[in-house]
Design a protein around this nucleic acid. Structure first.
Lengths: 267, 267
DNA sequence: AGATATTTGTTCGTATGTATT
DNA sequence: TAATACATACGAACAAATATC
């Protein structure tokens, strides 16, 4: 008698046959759909691995690849232990910004490109934020200016100043009510902070840059306090143009590899 | 005498000890670094799974989760068969756009948000593309206009028209020399094509919308042929403002779920 | 604070599908 | 067609982390 065929089979079930995709990718999509039709939202939990393998009829390894896919996309976080498992997450800015940097890594991109984009986005973001700043925001903005006082005491200090300068803009971006604008504004500023390097030889005069920035930041705070849209627009435009000029003067250039997390202290 | 510790151990090697990250994530990063320091570029192949497990001292399951991570980020593609394995890829627009949609899924975003962004980006993109269109581009632009001739013959036709109208803009975006602008322009147009739905009850007059679009597209082609920056700027500004007006008039609204690939024919 | 139970993280062995030759 | 080389998928076991008692 011929031996029976093993019950265990790698044959792909009929209902997911048509496109010759990887099973793990199919499962990842099915989990996404399941979450949506089930009405689950960020903070809700997914069933545990064992239950999911039973639900989607696949092995644990395949399921884990599907979960890894969702995790990389920032859609879930996974924890161990009792009551552990996957939790649905709101996709973070950081996760999406990383992916956009991955994309730009394979494009050729110059300081001028970044500053053209910055001029466009940042001015509009700044204007849109008028009337959306609370007192805590103002204190933080003023704190960022205070960080930049005095002349540079070395490279570590120089990097801290730059961090504070760009943090000023991130505060404004967070208060922009248009999520598309806000994302782009944060992204551009992060790009400036982490992926521009200056020629060490011409490292002479950063103080002029810093002084100009502080002056413009002060003008901006006054404009926000007065809720003067036109003045915010004008000040920010001049500010970005000034920053572009200083950056070019100091031989700033884009770093080559955007794939790797920034050193953050490259100055 | 105490028994010797088993050779096989899940203990994480010292060189990757500090942050308590998952091994698969660490391996994914190490592969990224390896690619960079080795000077590999898009199109080059990674070693096979077996070689990679030997190089990074982990099991196939763990390595496959790491590769899955890189695959989801669009950094590699994987194929089976002889000479199969992972190939380094330039991160695609589609992959990064998907991630940005994932992000926006958890934000509240309105037609006005999209059109404010579109006005900002598209005008500048259009101006930047002046002088970068070849004859093939012009033929394609004129083809897109031709697609929109005649009145609507039903919903399928309506969707095809909309597809062609937005394809016009994608052609321009692809010719914009600033990758940051170009990405954003394509993204906004894809968003408009795939994630705006119109109220079926007021489905009456799309023809006016279509006619206006065609008229503006023709004006734009003339402006591009004349390489007239100012005219391109003016025409595109009016075009977007007109499109915004029509969209609001027809009760357009953002679809709720950006997580799922578009039906593309929702109109 | 410590023991325990639960759940994910990792490994290994094996079998199957698929593309190249 | 057959052989080969590779990714894909399954299953069982053990290790590590963590919440609860």
């Amino acid at each position: 008698m011929t031996p029976v065929k093993p019950v265990k089979s790698n044959a792909i079930p009929a209902f997911r046959s048509l496109p010759r995709r990887k099973l793990s990718d199919v499962i990842a999509d099915e989990i996404k759909r399941w979450v949506l039709v089930e009405g689950r939202v960020a903070g809700d939990r997914l069933p545990q691995e064992q239950a999911l393998t039973a639900q989607f009829l696949c092995s644990r390894g395949t399921l884990r690849e599907a979960l890894k896919s969702l995790e990389v996309q920032g859609l879930i976080t996974v924890s161990t232990g009792p009551n552990g498992g996957a939790t649905i997450a709101a996709v973070s800015y950081e996760c999406s910004a990383r992916q956009l940097r991955n994309y730009l890594h394979f494009q050729t991109i110059s300081i001028e490109h970044v500053y053209d984009m910055r001029m466009l986005i940042e001015v509009e973001t700044a204007v849109a934020a008028v009337g959306h700043l609370d007192s805590a925001d103002f204190t933080r903005l003023e704190g960022d200016i205070a960080c930049c006082h005095g002349s540079a005491w070395g490279h570590g200090r120089q990097a801290a100043v730059r961090q504070a300068e760009l943090d000023f803009h991130v505060v404004l971006a967070r208060r922009c009510p248009n999520p598309l604008l806000a994302f782009q504004a944060r992204f551009i500023n992060d790009l400036l902070r982490d992926y521009i390097e200056f020629d060490v030889h011409t490292c002479a005069d950063f103080d002029g840059f810093t002084a100009d920035n502080s002056a413009y930041h002060k003008k901006l705070i006054d404009a926000y306090r007065a809720a003067d849209h036109a003045l915010v627009r004008r000040s920010m435009t001049e500010h970005i143009e000034s920053a572009r000029w200083h950056t070019l003067r100091l031989n700033g250039s884009m770093v080559e590899a955007l794939l790797i997390p920034p050193d953050r202290m490259t100055i």
